[in-house]
């Protein structure tokens, strides 16, 4: 039995926030629908009112605001992957978006949906974590902005309130002293959920890594940075030995955060190997 609900399709943000104010817990917001359609088909969507935000033009933009890039939640993975602004100022996000699902999924699925659905395997989240992205949540009475790492409570759980809507994602544009990499491991190249994904950003000062940010997805309960490994890399001249050490530490941090499980035995070396590859790629050495 498919889920049943009433359907609303507000054409402005104000109208959407009114609906969420009035119906709160009884609503569910739909953007591209690539995740929700499965729940609807299975009869698992419990909302009385489905609020389709896809006809709100202002939520659809990618724009530059000073040195910030500001992305509306309705921007699709396909649009992110082909955006010149993203390619130039946040290529790690473009690559992450391009690894989602398949062309068809990328044409419908949105960055907002990827964030809100809060799957531990979401591909854009590690990229947003290393970009130190802020998410803005708005309700009729006002809005709040917070770092994306503070947004998650656990797998598929976030702090968003029933009357709130994610209205934008912002982060500082990166200049070309920043190098990056994004690696995803899944059963196949397309149409497969990430087993592990890794995003790396490194700010280079001549030969030295001034600042390094590493986040791995699908491997920790909530999105986070690998701070111990980042500390090892900070200020170092990237070498095979430093990268080896940092990769080992990331694998340890992953186990410390997610606990020892039956899968740990293969995940630990897999994480280590992939982080090594991601760091090598970011620093452009040893390939």
């Amino acid at each position: 039995m498919r889920s049943e609900f009433a359907y609303a399709s507000p054409s402005s943000l104000g109208e959407a926030l009114e609906i969420l104010k009035d119906f709160g817990e009884r609503t569910c917001v739909i953007a591209g629908g690539t995740d929700l359609m499965i729940a609807i088909r299975e009869g698992e969507l419990r909302a009385e009112l489905l609020v389709d935000i896809s006809r709100i033009p202002e939520l659809r933009l990618i724009r530059e605001e000073g040195n910030q890039i500001c992305i509306g939640p309705l921007v699709t993975h396909g649009e992110l992957a082909s955006s010149g602004l993203i390619k130039k100022g946040a290529s790690v996000l473009g690559r992450a978006a391009n690894s989602v699902g398949s062309p068809q999924i990328r044409n419908m699925g949105t960055i907002g949906g990827n964030i809100i659905n809060a799957s531990p395997a979401a591909d854009t989240i590690p990229a947003l974590v290393v970009l130190e992205a802020q998410v803005t949540l708005k309700k009729r009475e006002g809005e709040r902005s917070l770092p994306i790492t503070d947004f998650y409570l656990g797998p598929y759980k976030t702090i968003i309130g029933a009357q709130e809507l994610l209205t934008k994602i912002t982060f500082a544009k990166l200049d070309d002293t920043w190098k990056s990499s994004f690696i995803k491991l899944a059963r196949r190249k397309a149409l497969a959920i990430s087993r592990i994904n890794i995003a790396v950003l490194a700010k280079m000062d001549e030969m030295r890594a001034k600042e390094v940010r590493v986040s791995i997805g699908s491997s920790t309960p909530t999105p986070c940075r690998m701070e111990k490994a980042e500390a090892v890399l900070r200020g170092a001249v990237p070498s095979a030995a430093v990268i080896e050490e940092a990769s080992r530490i990331v694998a340890e941090e992953m186990v410390a955060r997610s606990g020892v499980r039956p899968s740990t035995e293969y995940k630990r070396p897999a994480v280590q190997g992939l982080v090594k590859k991601a760091l090598q790629e970011a620093f452009n050495i040893g390939l």
Partner: peptide, 14 residues
């Protein structure tokens, strides 16, 4: 643009 018809909620094609 190519999409999966099974993952598009019909009201969206209005």
């Amino acid at each position: 643009r190519p999409v999966y018809a099974c993952l598009v909620l019909a009201p969206k094609v209005d």
